[in-house]
Design a protein around this nucleic acid. Structure first.
Length: 439
DNA sequence: TGCTCCTGTGGAAACTTCCT
DNA sequence: AGGAAGTTTCCACAGGAGCA
């Protein structure tokens, strides 16, 4: 009924003045475009009409193509708007308004630290303040005071949480202190419990799904017709990519030609200057085996996504980035479910890791299986997109037992026994033989 | 004294899980 | 669902050890 009324073109009041529907639409569009207001309630306040009424007008505007909605019927946000919202959210907090934290916050922004990481660090330092009932200003009176406060906090923390890691807290505290010129010479932070050593250095090197478990997991997924997980699983095992790189794959970056099969994945962990969906990172070109080409052909045949491998294009980068999270949150728990059905057959270290990070286990498996088959670390580093072999050797792979046994054989073939030792060994063996005969 | 090799250190990004 | 809390990677370089 209301729609009918509007379609007749009856004038609408805006701030008491009679205007046409077009004029109202234009007014709202200006608010959305110029002031980046995307919330219905916020618009309703600005215009002085009920949110429900605004909502109806917005639906009309959408049908006329003036504005765009995402799949949930909300106004599309741009990535710039999303970022500004996040910065605003953090800077509005009481703790961040304190001048010492404000300065630190600004320093982080200047250094291009990601807002999510800034927020994490601020919360860590806030915990120190809350625990010991001190203010940020009190913490930075002097280096001595800062160290004393930190020591007290660590004692309290370790007594209450003996099993929790402390690395990120140490880094956050140092970061905060550095903003106020309290810095430690290289290697000296450790003396005050403020070193940056890793909590668990490379404890998961060598975790790897064996071929048998891989086959079983794959069969389970296919049997349950969980094709999405299966395709993800196979891409992970064949490319060694991180979950963010898998989830952001696009069809245009995949060449499915039989004789020239390659694909590109966008890794964001290091900012290298290239951009994909507004994130900085680097495209890595990979040449996976034919079996993955078949899997991808199959996946394309049962899905209709034209741009992205995993989801429909959501029109803006901000919305697409949300989709990356969604697909990850959907697939990885499913992978874990499948894993739990075969877990008893996997070695303990791998099992423990798989329960924590099944998605990343695929990357570990990729590296370790290549290592087991005799591929050198620098080639693995190149294939998996690591900058150097350091990470491959320390965090991912160990020399397999099989390789060590092979080396043993090699060593046995290299003579290094003196004549005297050889004679003694022969004598001893003869003695033993005699004893055996006597017994 | 200067070179190479190697490990430790620093800083932070990515990611998972917990909580509301 | 989204933020807070917590865990695991990742790169790059400082600086010590060994050597000529």
């Amino acid at each position: 009924m209301t729609v009918k009324c509007h379609s007749s073109g009856r004038p609408i009041r805006l701030f008491g003045r009679r205007i046409s529907k077009d004029e109202l639409h234009n007014y709202i569009k200006k608010l959305i475009d110029n002031e980046e207001i995307t919330q219905t309630c916020e618009l309703s306040k600005r215009i002085g009409k009920q949110p429900r009424q605004i909502r109806r007008i917005m639906i009309e505007m959408e049908s006329r193509g003036l504005i765009e909605f995402n799949q949930k019927g909300r106004l599309l946000k741009t990535i710039e708007k999303k970022n500004r919202d996040e910065y605003e959210f953090v800077s509005k907090k009481e703790f961040v308004k304190k001048p010492e934290i404000q300065k630190w916050f600004n320093d982080c922004i200047l250094r291009d630290v990601k807002i999510s990481n800034i927020r994490n660090m601020i919360n860590q330092v806030k915990d120190v303040c809350d625990t010991l009932k001190v203010t940020p200003a009190q913490m930075i009176i002097s280096k001595r005071v800062a160290v004393e406060i930190w020591k007290n906090y660590m004692i309290h923390f370790k007594l209450n949480h003996p099993n929790k890691t402390t690395g990120s807290r140490r880094v956050a505290m140092r970061n905060f202190l550095a903003s106020h010129d309290i810095i430690f010479a290289f290697g000296m932070g450790k003396q005050y419990g403020l070193g940056s050593e890793h909590d668990r250095y490379a404890t998961h090197a060598g975790v790897c799904l064996d071929i048998d478990s891989i086959t079983k997991m794959g069969s389970l997924m296919m049997h349950e017709r969980d094709f999405e997980s299966y395709v993800w699983f196979r891409i992970g095992l064949r490319t060694g990519a991180r979950s963010s790189a898998i989830s952001s794959m696009t069809w245009e970056r995949i060449n499915l030609d039989k004789d020239n099969f390659w694909l590109e994945q966008f890794e964001i962990k290091d900012k290298r200057g290239q951009t994909h969906m507004t994130q900085k990172g680097e495209w890595k070109k990979k040449y996976p085996p034919e079996d993955l080409r078949q899997v991808l052909l199959f996946w394309r045949s049962i899905t209709n996504n034209s741009k992205f491998v995993w989801f429909e294009d959501q029109k803006t980068d901000a919305e697409n980035l949300k989709e990356l999270t969604r697909i990850r949150n959907r697939v990885i728990p499913k992978l874990k479910e499948h894993f739990l059905k075969i877990e008893s057959k996997v070695d303990p270290n791998t099992r423990e890791y798989a329960k924590k990070r099944i998605g990343h286990l695929l990357r570990h498996t990729f590296a370790q299986l290549l290592k087991n088959s005799g591929v050198s670390s620098d080639k693995i580093a190149h294939a998996g997109g690591w900058k150097t072999t350091q990470i491959v050797d320390t965090w991912y792979t160990t020399i397999s037992e099989e390789e060590q046994k092979k080396m043993k054989l090699n060593l046995e073939n290299i003579e290094c026994i003196s004549d005297i030792e050889r004679e003694k060994i022969t004598e001893r063996n003869e003695c033993l033989n005699l004893q055996v005969i006597h017994n």
